[in-house]
């Protein structure tokens, strides 16, 4: 059925210029701006916490009083397992490391791993999903099989296995940790992107692109991509939250980043277990708290985005209408004049 909607006001030239490349993103930003109520709160709270986390991570060398592996300063060794005081606000560990510095640098590690993991899995997952969804056939079947197998695996176990494999190749650094986590997340992007590519492939505009003579690579880049990345930001933020947890899990099991390479919350927590039994709460509390806050921030952001972008969750805001008083139209009765040639007015 035809719905002739009227153009709703002029479009600012800059808005459309921006949208030229990333038309899909334009819709996302518009939806975010329109968000109200709880989703809006989640979105903003999540964004603020996540921003704090990122700032801490980026400026760690400026914020932290010492480096993550500093155990002495000014010719003195730091106290061993010292409780929080003026010099060491968060106390020190059994290795005389400053807990505050380790916590702050931990954010940095988490961010690095998270970014790398998200970027790797995003690129690979989206690419594979697009290809599988658009071409279908045996390639699709094989990819789906592999991805489903990965997906069905307990994710921590998968990360551990991947961690073993990669550490053999690349050592126990940030990249290895990121790669182990990447393996866990690729299937998520793959599934979502493949599903939307499958439905977008049947869309008339894709058909039209084919009718224009576009090559598959062009169709995928110009017609599918913009329409299937809609759901990706949500997964990305959720994965970011999850990635911090997984990284910590690996670290806790001693499989993550080597302590000499970077500060890592999971490793610190593992070390702090004995301390906690001995009544030393500071070595476990601060890294743990940092982790919870970071995860909370990204989760809120992800949930908020999900509420805002997911059309089934979105509800139109109701604005109440007050009807002004109605003035009825006047009625005029035409006299039934026999000599008025009715046809005249008609033709």
């Amino acid at each position: 059925m035809a719905t002739t909607t009227l153009p709703t006001g002029p479009i600012e030239p800059d808005a459309s210029a921006k949208g030229t490349r990333f038309g899909g993103l334009r819709r996302i930003t518009a939806a975010i701006r329109e968000a109200r109520g709880v989703p809006r709160f989640m979105l903003w709270a999540g964004a603020v916490i996540s921003a704090l986390f990122v700032i801490t991570a980026v400026f760690a060398p400026l914020i932290a009083p010492y480096s993550f592996d500093t155990y002495r300063s000014g010719g003195h060794n730091f106290p061993k397992q010292g409780s929080p005081d003026g010099d060491h606000w968060f106390g020190t560990t059994v290795q005389s490391l400053d807990v505050l510095s380790r916590t702050v640098y931990g954010a940095r590690t988490a961010l690095e791993v998270m970014l790398l993991a998200v970027v790797f899995s995003l690129i690979l997952g989206v690419l594979l999903g697009l290809v599988a969804g658009y071409f279908g056939g045996w390639l699709d079947r094989i990819l789906v099989l592999v991805m489903d197998a990965l997906f069905a695996f307990p994710y921590l176990l998968l990360a551990i296995v991947a961690g073993f494999v990669f550490s053999g190749i690349a050592g126990g650094g940030v990249v290895t940790a990121a790669l182990s986590i990447t393996v866990v997340y690729i299937p998520q992007y793959f599934r979502v992107v493949r599903a939307s590519a499958l439905s977008a492939r049947e869309a008339t505009f894709v058909e039209a692109a084919r009718a224009m003579g576009a090559k598959p690579s062009v169709v995928i880049r110009k017609y599918l991509f913009g329409n299937v990345i809609q759901s990706v930001p949500v997964i990305t933020t959720m994965n970011a939250a999850d990635g911090i947890g997984t990284l910590a899990g690996l670290g806790f099991l001693g499989l993550g980043i080597q302590p000499t390479q970077a500060a890592e919350w999971g490793y610190d927590l593992d070390r702090a277990i004995d301390d906690a039994n001995a009544g030393m709460w500071w070595t476990s509390l601060y890294p743990g708290l940092a982790m919870v806050i970071a995860i909370l921030g990204f989760t809120l952001l992800g949930e908020g985005l999900n509420d805002v972008l997911n059309p089934t969750m979105r509800r139109r805001r109701i604005s109440k209408v007050l009807l002004p008083a109605h003035t009825r139209r006047r009625t005029v009765t035409a006299p039934a004049l026999p000599d008025v040639p009715e046809g005249e007015a008609v033709k």
């Binding site: 459309s16 008339t204 505009f205 039209a208 110009k222 017609y223 329409n227």
Partner: peptide, 14 residues
């Protein structure tokens, strides 16, 4: 030219 003008254009393309 396809039947449904609303579906014939890529919504993400100007």
């Amino acid at each position: 030219v396809f039947q449904d003008p609303h579906a014939s254009l890529n919504p993400a393309m100007d």
